[in-house]
């Protein structure tokens, strides 16, 4: 009886160790009585043996193997070194970027504050009441006396917004504040003018 494709697949599974033991017993019984099947198994074994020699012949010799291993390990170390360098570079670049951003923001902020100071015009006027009177003012004086006997000095920016309105118990204190403010503004160099207004000043 000729060996068909199914038997061939069966024999190959047997040689590959992929046949369950229960099926192996059936195959052994057939091999005992079917000569063609036995011959086919021997042929497959011989071919597998030949291929085994071929597979083994593909193995590298020691020199080639050592060279390959050295190349791999050298490349791995190189990769590590590259990673370390790029990590350090990344840290340095990040720090530099942070510093640059900080400087940039500081510079922009400085310009803004300086501009604000430079653009400010502070004047003092004699006001009859808190927050009274249009325009940038720094007001104070007896006329600005509140009900509790306090003197109010309003400080306005160039666009007329009141930025501060400190209260003082005496006229002298209010006068002193205006003088100090004038000195401070003069020191900053960005003040256009301080105009104490009103007879009292």
């Amino acid at each position: 009886m000729a060996v068909n494709d199914n038997d061939l697949a069966l024999l190959q599974a047997y040689l590959d160790g992929e046949m369950p033991i229960s099926e192996c017993e059936g195959l052994w019984r057939r091999l005992a009585v079917e000569e063609e099947l036995t011959a086919e198994l021997d042929r497959l074994r011989a071919e597998a043996g030949m291929r085994q020699v071929v597979w083994t012949s593909l193995e590298p010799n020691d020199d080639a193997l050592t060279q390959l291993q050295d190349n791999i390990l050298r490349e791995a170390r190189r990769q590590d070194a590259r990673a370390r360098v790029s990590g350090s570079l990344r840290t340095i670049m990040t720090a530099a970027a942070c510093i640059m951003i900080g400087i940039g923001l500081g510079w922009m902020g400085h310009d803004r504050w300086a501009g604000l100071w430079r653009g400010a015009t502070v004047t003092a006027t004699h006001q009859a009441s808190l927050g009274g009177g249009p325009g940038p003012t720094l007001g104070g004086g007896p006329g600005a006396m509140l009900g509790g006997g306090k003197f109010v000095v309003t400080v306005s920016d160039s666009s007329g917004r009141v930025v501060a309105a400190p209260q003082f118990n005496t006229f002298d204190e209010a006068r002193q504040f205006i003088d100090d403010l004038a000195k401070a503004q003069a020191n900053r160099g960005g003040i256009h003018e301080v105009v104490p207004a009103g007879d009292q000043f």
Partner: peptide, 27 residues
Amino acid sequence: SRRLLAVARAIVGNRASPEDVVQQAFM
């Protein structure tokens, strides 16, 4: 690497360098 190089040789034959295959795989 010895057996892997043999496997790579068997698969790529003469169409690529098996050493490159193994090295690239490890990398």
